[in-house]
């Protein structure tokens, strides 16, 4: 498959990159690892006039440990995250998520953390070759007015299937979005719009430059679980990132995030709150929380990730429960 034609931009530093984004805006797509962008371009889902390379921006590849935060540069590869002792120990869910993204030879050495966060939402009816799509009317995401995933769907219900974001949201990550005249720091959860057509609130002239992870007080453990058909190739059909903050064997704060069930990762407020003040070994409390997470996530999911909805909902329960057990240190 040939790539469509485009103009290649290669900024030497961040300032130049932000200038280019400011002048080209919607016409430019950013390539970091390319493992997501180039597939979309080959399928002619995207035909940008300009592609801006992050190749020379080596200053954006770092993992730094500060007093009360850990910062990760946008261009840090998944392999660097898996290999980092700081992340393995303090932010286990993130290391587990990075390790489970596809296969080492596909994504880990080229794929970056920001590219993984900003991967577009997917749908089995949309992420197909141009030939496949040419046989029928275009769907909402393709510029048409039909949804093939949901009867009488009035908008796009494509699913966000990234692995890193659920883990990062469970860990209360923030992201830094830079543009020509300044930058803003927002919660990662606010980056998602829950709109399948425009999944991210990032502006066309903004560049995601840094991920900030807060250091948790008390005893904090996290875990990430995902389910996919073929782990090396397929995107997850459901996933769960959890963080449990405990003191003297009692849970002080829990965060449960379910991925691949909606247009954005879902932070399960009610399920998370039920765990407050519960014991770390209270398996019934974990089951109750996983049940609530399953019920709530099920209302968002549509049948567009290659498995039946019932199965994905049932397995959401299993993924959340397994992640909670792992974070609490009581996995069998």
């Amino acid at each position: 498959m040939r790539l469509p034609r485009f103009e290649y931009l290669e900024p030497d530093d961040l300032t130049q990159a932000l200038d280019m984004l400011a002048s080209h805006k919607e016409d430019v797509k950013i390539i970091a690892g390319g493992t997501d962008l180039l597939v979309r371009m080959k399928n002619q889902l995207l035909t940008p006039a300009f592609v801006m390379s992050m190749k020379q921006l080596s200053g954006l590849s770092y993992i730094k440990n500060h007093d009360d935060t850990l910062t990760i540069g946008a261009k840090t590869t998944l392999a660097d995250i898996v290999d980092s002792d700081d992340i393995q120990e303090g932010y286990t869910a993130l290391a587990q998520a990075a390790e489970r993204v596809g296969a080492e030879t596909i994504q880990h050495h080229r794929g970056t953390i920001s590219g993984n966060i900003l991967q577009d939402t997917r749908c089995i009816h949309y992420n197909q070759s141009r030939f496949h799509r040419s046989g029928r009317q275009p769907c909402h995401k393709d510029g048409g007015k039909i949804c093939y995933a949901r009867d009488e769907g009035d908008r796009c219900y494509s699913t966000y299937q990234g692995d890193m974001a659920p883990a990062l949201i469970a860990l209360e990550a923030k992201v830094v979005l830079s543009k020509k005249d300044g930058k803003r720091t927002i919660n990662l959860s606010d980056l998602f719009t829950s709109d399948g057509f425009h999944p991210f609130s990032i502006e066309p002239d903004e560049l995601l430059t840094e991920i900030i992870l807060p250091k948790q007080k008390n005893n904090s453990k996290s875990a990430y679980q995902r389910l996919s058909y073929r782990s090396a190739i397929d995107y997850p059909i459901t996933s769960a990132g959890v963080m449990i903050n405990s003191k003297a064997e009692k849970i002080k704060k829990a965060r449960i995030v379910v991925g691949s069930m909606s247009r954005a990762p879902l932070f399960m407020v009610k399920a998370s709150e039920t765990l407050a003040e519960k014991s770390l070994t209270d398996i019934d409390a974990f089951k109750e929380a996983a049940g609530i997470a399953m019920d709530n996530a099920g209302t968002f999911a549509v049948h567009n990730a290659g498995s039946t909805l019932e199965y994905r909902c049932d397995m959401t329960f299993v993924m959340v429960l397994k992640a909670l057990e792992q974070a609490a240190g009581i996995e069998k």
Binding site: E10, I31, G34, T35, E104, T105, I106, R110
Partner: peptide, 12 residues
């Protein structure tokens, strides 16, 4: 490091 040549631009 092992990477996919089909998903790497020659310029990169």
């Amino acid at each position: 490091k092992p990477v996919r040549a089909c998903l790497t631009l020659a310029l990169e």
